[in-house]
């Protein structure tokens, strides 16, 4: 057996898995990316609350509250990101949930800065490695606490 098996770690403090809500807002059905990201984050030791397709800002807010999520990952593939992501930011602010939003999918370079300005914590570009994806989520969470 390996020394210091995980069961040694008490659940208080220390190494608690991050809890991340993953969702797609609106009608866009491209879920290859979000399913890959779900596995990447699971394999990076995070707990993924997978909401999947056709979510609304309300349903995401509810999930974030009840699941006490540390971060939200939104996957966007159909050019609606400039409308939908800022809407999500607003909804979270309204609910007083200081949870970072990370956007992945197809986001043209020129849109990245406006999205950050709108309150999105990070935008994951195409071709990001698994380590980068996990690191971006971790960094966004530590920056927001």
């Amino acid at each position: 057996m390996v020394d210091r098996t995980p069961s040694k770690e008490p659940m208080s403090g220390g190494d608690v898995p991050l809890r991340v809500v993953l969702a797609k807002l609106g009608l866009d059905g491209h879920d290859r990316g979000i399913k890959v990201v779900a596995r990447i984050l699971r394999d990076a030791g995070m707990e993924v609350i997978y909401l999947g397709l056709r979510q609304t800002t309300d349903s995401i807010v509810t999930a974030v509250m009840e699941e006490d999520a540390d971060a939200i990952g939104l996957s966007m593939h159909n050019a609606g990101h400039m409308t939908l992501a800022p809407n999500m930011v607003k909804a979270l602010r309204q609910a007083e949930l200081p949870v970072p939003i990370i956007v992945g999918g197809i986001v043209p370079k020129d849109d990245v800065q406006p999205m950050l300005d709108a309150g999105v914590a990070a935008v994951i570009g195409p071709g990001a490695s698994a380590e980068e994806v996990a690191a971006i989520v971790r960094d966004a969470v530590s920056a927001s606490v």
Binding site: P6, P17, A38, R39, L41, R42, D43, A44, G45, M46, E47, V48, I49, Y50, L51, G52, S59, A63, E67
Partner: peptide
């Protein structure tokens, strides 16, 4: 269940319940 290897998990019951 959490993954015994990584400690992570994909929790999908919520969408099945809504």
């Amino acid at each position: 269940p959490s993954s015994p290897l990584t400690g992570g998990a994909i929790l999908g019951d919520r969408i099945r319940m809504e």
